[in-house]
Amino acid sequence: MYHSGLEAPQGIWWKPVHGSEKVWATIAFAWCLVLFAMMPFWHLRGGQNPSGIRHRVDPVAFRTRVTEFIEEYKVGTDNQIPVVEPPPGSHIYLQGAMWSWTPVLRLKQGAEYILHLSSVDVNHGFSLYPLNINFQVVPGYDYGLRITPHEAGEFQIVCNEFCGIGHHLMVGKVVVVPSDDEQAAGTTVDTAAAAVATEGGSR
């Protein structure tokens, strides 16, 4: 005899399951397996993964690295924020601080870069508009993401993690210039070589 959820079941309640419940539970479980499998599958086949090269970094050291990076590749300023144009295939650095993104990045369409994100104070959120690419920027951690901008244009970096009273003022910029050089378009980062080159060049 059926009872409600308010009544204490008498005797043994470990009983065989209804046919329809069994069918639904099987379908639901199979769907959960698909949900699980999609993540490793996308690592193998998909182009967008949040894996990155992840390190702890001292915020002061990161600030120093960003300063060196700016000195090396600076081509001008935009609203008093330095603009850098690093070569395709290089490690590039973006610093989140209350309340600005530094520097402005000029990138080549179709080239691959390794974008290092970190914060020198509190948590920030990297949100690239209008693409809607979002990453958490945590002080003390360097998040190195391989990116390949495949379309030219101007993009804004919105901060989407609350970082204090000037949070809404924290807008940065990425400019992707159309590729005039087919070779640049095919450039990918040789991680080891690029790392050595940038480290060597800056120290």
């Binding site: 993540m39 996308w42 993964n49 958490q136 989407n160």
Partner: peptide, 12 residues
Amino acid sequence: GTEQINIIAHNT
């Protein structure tokens, strides 16, 4: 809450 799809959802 899917690892990669979170890239286009996080903190929006």
